[in-house]
Design a binder for these strands. Structure first.
Lengths: 116, 116
DNA sequence: TCTTCATTTAACTTTTTTATTAATTAATGA
DNA sequence: TCATTAATTAATAAAAAAGTTAAATGAAGA
């Protein structure tokens, strides 16, 4: 993971429902201009503009200029960082799962014993 | 994913550096009582207590009573939810990667052509 | 050049979050 | 029972986040 990546900042960017919805929409529909991203919300344009800027500062999206529009696109690096982070926790929950499996196996073994 | 899971709320819980550090510590060191989790911070005990409550409300940890201590433990479900969420984004960045690979392969092929 | 469209910046208000100290609860063990 | 330890709740102050309207920027095209 990029050492500059400030995970709490990235989580903060995703903590707002409006910003989360914007990110989800970019995943589902691909790159979109600011105006189109703003449409589903009754919020003012400046409010949306700030949300998008915050997402950009967190490294989750980037903006490019195309004719008179600013087109937003997801940036893969931060998502890869998030993935790498959560993968570390997988060990933790897989262990729990393995323990459950072991327990079930053990019970199965005991059931077999009792049927002899 | 559990439909009740409010991802922005979970991200909000992880957006604070203190809470993030607490979660990371629980992963590295396992279950710990509130008092021990509080030690590395110069913050007051009530402040830490609130942070831990917020993590609990977001479903990231749970507290159990053991003698006079409240022991905190990670709860795997929310982490699994996070993992499932980020996995959806993997498609997006793998696609980019595949395109890069395709481009490199293509260039390789063109290089071979030019050497003929 | 002038107008229009898309978006941002400024100035400001409201709401939410986070921290503090003081007081309270609850369990332990002399 | 009483003192001690562990942690939480209450009341409140300070800081950060998010929204609004009005004004500014900047490219497009008549």
């Amino acid at each position: 993971m990029n050492t500059q990546t400030n995970l709490p900042e990235v989580f903060g960017a995703l903590a707002d429902p409006t910003r989360f919805a914007i990110v989800e929409r970019l995943l589902k529909e691909g790159d979109l201009p600011v105006g189109q991203l703003a449409e589903p919300f009754k919020m003012s344009a400046p409010a949306i503009s700030r949300h998008i800027k915050l997402l950009e500062n967190a490294g989750l999206i980037e903006r490019r200029i195309e004719k008179q529009w600013r087109v937003c696109a997801l940036k893969k690096d931060r998502f890869a960082d998030l993935h790498q982070w959560i993968e570390r926790y997988r060990t933790f929950w897989n262990t729990s799962f393995d323990r459950l499996e072991a327990l079930l196996d053990k019970q199965q073994g005991e059931d077999d014993d009792s049927s002899r």
